[in-house]
Structure formats: C-alpha cells, structure tokens
C-alpha cells in the first residue's frame, strides 16, 4: 500500500495541498466578504458612531465631537419626526388593503384556466417592472389639476358635481394619491407571490367542495383563504417594510408637502442628512428606522411560525 512508503513526504504534500486549497478558498471568498465589510458592515457600524456625534456631511475645520444621546433626544422631541412616522403608518394602513387586495384578486383570476391567461399575467406584471421614476412621470400627468384624466373621470362619473381635485397639492388627497400610484406600481410582485401560494393548494380540495355543492364564493372563503395563511403573513410583511421605506415618490412628486402631510421617515432622514448636512442627526433617524424594520420582521417571523 502506498501509505507505507515515505510517510513524511506524503504528509508534507498533503499539507501543501491543504495549504493551497485554503488559499484558493480564501481567494474565492474574499472579494464578496471584503466588499460587504467595506460597504455594508462599516457603514452600519458608522451609523451607530455618527449618531452619537455631531458629524457633518462636508467636514468643518473643527472635527466632529461626541455628544452622547443628544441626537436621539432631538429626533424624538421633534414634532416633524413624529409627523413623518405617523404619515408612514397612515400610508401603510391605506396601501396594505388596496395593494394586497388587488394582488389577491388578480392572482385568483389568472390562476383560473381561462383563455389568454398568460397574456393577462404578462400585462398585469408590467407595472412591477416599471421604475418608480417613470411611474411618477406618468401619474403626475394623470393627476394634473384641473384637466387631468382622473379629474375628467371624476367629473364625468359625478356629472360635474365633484372635483376637480388637486390630487397631489391638496393636503387631504396627497397621501391617498401617493397610495394609489404606489399600489399600481408594486402590486405585481404580491400578485406573483399569491399566485405561487395558490398553486400550492391542492386542486382535489376544490373538486371535493364542488361535489359537495359549494359555490365559488364558499370555495374562496373556506379553501383559498385558509390555504393562503402563510402567504398572507409574508405579503403583509414585505408590503409593510416597503411602505416604511417610502421615499422616491415623495421626493419627486410632493417633497413631503403640502404642509408636511406626505413627509416620510426616509424623506425626513435624507432631508436632515443630505440637505441640512447633519449626518449625525440623520444617523440617529436611520437607527430608529432600522429598529422599526427589525421589529416588524421579528413579529412576522413569529407569525409565520404560528401559521405553519
């Protein structure tokens, strides 16, 4: 047997091979880890450090100094911050039923064996691949005051009794207007998730219910809805997290206005950090945002476990 011959060299070659393999593994692993360290871990840790200092975006002659928890105190006692948080919650409460409800409706419809279902599915997914910036261009013309399509539709349907409404400029309507365009842009993703969930429900259940004489509505409530329990939890979670990060639409269309009615946490953070250049202060906001997102995910993980 070969292991009898020259055991020392054999060990050495083995060691050399192991060494070479180790270096190779390191070489393949490092690019990703180094990039993640520099551009994810370091900024994340920096945000904790910055939040305790008065760091500015453009450095001043005087270096930034440690100021303890002052940033957090200021953020939490600023009515504008609470306003932005409340707006995000309002946005979430409005967008959740509209976006998820519409996603479920379309998913159920394209899950039927109807003619042209693939064409319908492709068309209904189109908004989801459109950039939010483009969506803003389109919808701001749809919302035109006083002669945009939505206003003509409103006036036509009510025989001129209602409207015209300055959708994006009216403090009562600006948030619902953002909700509608956001739901239109994003529902396709939830639709696909629901579709995957629907396809996991055994068709035999539906056949059995049909034999028992259950109508379409009963089948939906007693088979489809319970079968989608886990999907619901997941969809609600991702929609909520997305909603808490609301920024692009607000930044382009309303700048948080009118009267701060559409200001959001991320918009507030970018405003204080980028426009007012108070990076320390903005970092405190970003940590609060992180804690909120983390809390939502943890709650979801619990619910997912309970649902399965």
């Amino acid at each position: 047997m070969s292991e009898m011959a020259l055991p020392t060299t054999d060990k050495r070659t083995k060691l050399r091979i192991a060494n070479r393999e180790f270096r190779q593994e390191l070489g393949m692993l490092m690019p990703a880890l180094v990039l993640l360290a520099i551009f994810l871990v370091v900024p994340f840790l920096l945000s904790f450090w910055f939040s305790l200092t008065n760091e500015r975006l453009v450095p001043r002659p005087v270096p930034a100094s440690f100021i303890g928890l002052q940033n957090f105190q200021r953020v939490l006692s600023d009515p504008s911050f609470w306003n932005s948080l409340w707006n995000v919650i309002r946005f979430t409460l409005m967008v959740l039923p509209i976006q998820c409800g519409f996603a479920l409706l379309t998913a159920v419809l394209i899950n039927q064996k109807l003619p042209f279902r693939n064409l319908f599915r492709s068309l209904l997914f189109l908004p989801a691949i459109s950039s939010m910036v483009i969506v803003c261009v389109i919808w701001s013309t749809l919302y035109q005051f006083p002669t945009g399509p939505l206003n003509s539709l409103l006036q036509g349907l009510t025989f001129g009794l209602a409207g015209p409404v300055d959708w994006l400029g009216d403090s009562a309507w600006s948030m619902p207007a953002l909700v509608l365009l956001s739901a239109w842009q994003a529902y396709g993703f939830q639709m696909i998730v629901y579709l995957a969930g629907l396809q996991n429900i055994s068709p035999e259940l539906y056949d059995a219910a049909k034999i028992d004489g259950a109508n379409a509505w009963q089948r939906f409530w007693h088979i489809t809805m319970p079968g989608l329990k886990q999907t619901h939890v997941f969809v609600i979670l991702i929609t909520t997290i997305q909603a808490f990060k609301l920024f692009t639409q607000v930044n382009i269309l309303t700048q948080g206005g009118p009267d701060g009615r559409t200001d959001t946490v991320v918009h507030y953070m970018i405003h204080s950090g980028f426009v007012e250049q108070k990076v320390g202060y903005a970092s405190a906001v970003s940590i609060i945002l992180f804690v909120i997102v983390l809390a939502v995910s943890l709650v979801q993980r619990r619910l997912m476990r309970d649902a399965s």
């Binding site: 520099i38 370091v42 900024p43 920096l46 910055f50 760091e55 975006l57 970018i270 940590i287 995910s297």
Partner: peptide, 14 residues
C-alpha cells in the same frame, strides 16, 4: 436584514 435606506448616510460620508 439591514435595509439600504438605513446605511446610505454613513455610506455617503465613507
């Protein structure tokens, strides 16, 4: 779990 939004400010400084 770390959202992009919560690291952009320090990332910009970096």
């Amino acid at each position: 779990i770390i959202p992009q939004e919560s690291i952009v400010m320090p990332l910009l400084v970096l």
